[in-house]
Design a protein around this nucleic acid. Structure first.
Lengths: 243, 243
DNA sequence: TCGGACAAAAAGTATATACATGTATGTATG
DNA sequence: CATACATACATGTATATACTTTTTGTCCGA
């Protein structure tokens, strides 16, 4: 019998978190069937209607697919909103018909600064994964990408070869994103950024700060710097697609 | 006792249809409270859980708003996505507890350049409205706002006093937006921009190009320039809280 | 071996019931 | 008159129960 956390939220939300966490950590693998409603009833000690509501809402939100008479499965990566998509730079470059290449500058596990630990909403100091990658479009550097990754959710992040797999693709494959925060600003390039992007110090850069959540847990924090002269973020959105 | 149609769909879907129909035909007026769950139970002859599910799903879809202890109401037009909201600068400034003020530099009707006419997807050259406004936060200029407006949709745009009403509010009130396109980039300030925003020539600016559609028609084209040092665009999005 | 009957399993729907929580309002009490 | 309390009513949550619908696998007989 698993005991759900004793927080001040409805039971069905706790069940949803429990399911998302099990998906996020890979405990429930992508290709196998999830426990049935009755199995969850037995293991969590809640009523079937509550489990059913949690599963129904996760299905409506696009995380799961369900087949009557068969079972519940993890949904294939959903068609992402423009807002989420905006930093899958590798895909964008390829889509434009250009060649994408990455150069990994840093890949390590570090103790976060106090400020960073605060952003992760950690109760205490634990080490986190850290990567710095430069993304090239036809051998021209366009984006400097710094990421901090929660090792609880993605323990092997620091053992990947990100010159082969884009960090974005790896992360999306490893953990579902339930919430995203973006802050976009324009800043002048500092010396290090300028060197890596091959631009002048003080040149205009687009700076994107991004946090993603998996359930209630901050999964990643990214700081993406684009050479202003070589890149712009685009999106098109149509509100008229509702249920 | 009202009898629901005898179609081959779940009961809670019939209840949803019944409610939407009553809203759509205006039988339940926009400003009055909808029947309570128990009243619907009595009038439709179904269980409260079924009514509750119908109402909950319509609320999740954005049609209704509910207040515990008060009642169920028809939701205001369309809760706008963060992406659409990002350039209602007046509201943002006020929300931060600061004072907003506008200064209208230009308000005219002009013949568009060939490029602009192309962006509007006009078959032939027609005149369009044009405005340039500076937005101040506590007397500090933060945004230079240039708009081109389709006079077919909003004929009186050039006769408004935009130091009283924000252009954004006026436009949102006049025409519904069915689609939005954003392109965000970082550019150095040119001489004129620098003068209006009170920053140095060449200073980093966030530049937002925005097109909105009403149906198949381009309604507005906006070019928004933010002083990079004084502003950043933020958004937070959670996929599980809509659709 | 093929095919149908049957059973088991899984999600889908519907109801009755209970209690929790938030809001508005009337009423008694100081 | 104002405050506190009681009450009614609204939505929100949780459970137990029952039945339906769909799929899948199995067993048995022709």
């Amino acid at each position: 019998m698993i005991t759900l956390p004793d927080t001040a939220s409805p039971l069905y939300e706790k069940v949803k978190d429990y399911i998302l966490t099990n998906i996020g950590t890979g405990k429930w693998s992508k290709d196998r069937k999830l426990p049935s409603e009755n199995e969850l009833v037995a293991s969590l000690g809640v009523s079937r209607m509550t489990v059913h509501r949690a599963l129904r809402e996760l299905t409506a939100a696009g995380f799961l697919t369900r087949l009557q008479g068969v079972g519940t499965f993890i949904a294939p990566p959903r068609p992402q909103s423009a807002l989420i998509e905006i930093n899958n730079i590798a895909a964008e470059i390829v889509k434009r018909g250009n060649r994408h290449r990455s150069e990994v500058l840093v890949l390590e596990t570090i103790m976060p600064t106090k400020e960073l630990a605060l952003s992760f909403e950690f109760p205490k100091r634990v080490s986190i994964h850290h990567s710095v990658v430069v993304n090239f479009e036809n051998d021209l550097p366009v984006q400097l990408e710094e990421r901090f990754v929660n090792p609880t959710l993605i323990p092997d992040y620091d053992k990947q070869d990100f010159s082969k797999t884009a960090t974005y693709d790896y992360l999306m494959q490893k953990t579902p994103v339930t919430e995203v925060e973006h802050i976009i600003s324009a800043i002048p390039a500092d010396a290090e950024t300028a060197r890596h992007l091959g631009i002048d110090v003080g040149a205009c850069c687009l700076f994107l700060h991004r946090r993603t959540w998996t359930g209630a847990v901050v999964a990643t924090i990214s700081r993406l710097t684009y050479a202003g002269s070589r890149y712009s973020l685009g999106s098109r959105y149509s509100p008229s697609k509702n249920s």
